[in-house]
């Protein structure tokens, strides 16, 4: 990330929900799918186009389930087909309360990328 890059900011507890929900919209309120569709994917796409950084602040919520985070971030690759490298260059994760969540998100992105790559390879 360059020092001159401007930042967009999403604070999930304030901009989305204090209690993030399950994976899919059909499973309950404030799902990872909803967050990705409504907030994260548009912000990441804009950040890639305008060469900005989206700062995603995870702190301040009641708690995240794994499915929420996997769907929100892994889904960027699986469902929105945004390239892995582009996402890595466009996001910055803040998680001071639970620092392990940050690594977990990068892991979800990596796993989703690997699975998509395998799928593409098997199609060709």
């Amino acid at each position: 990330m360059l020092a001159s890059q401007t930042k967009m900011r999403i604070k999930i507890s304030q901009d989305f929900a204090f209690a993030p929900g399950p994976r899919y919209i059909r499973e309950g309120l404030h799902s990872g799918e909803e967050f990705r569709r409504e907030m994260l994917a548009p912000a990441v796409r804009e950040a890639i186009e305008t060469k900005q950084i989206v700062e995603i602040d995870l702190d301040g919520v009641a708690g995240y389930g794994r499915s929420f985070l996997e769907e929100a971030f892994g889904g960027l690759i699986r469902e929105d087909h945004i390239p892995h490298e582009s996402i890595l260059g466009a996001i910055s994760i803040i998680s001071n309360e639970q620092p392990s969540q940050r690594d977990r998100i990068y892991n979800y992105l990596k796993t989703a990328h690997e699975k998509e790559s395998q799928k593409m390879a098997s199609h060709t």
Partner: peptide, 12 residues
């Protein structure tokens, strides 16, 4: 057990 409550318990 609501999903959000389980996630909140683990964090707390």
């Amino acid at each position: 057990l609501p999903y959000t409550q389980a996630a909140a318990m683990l964090k707390r």
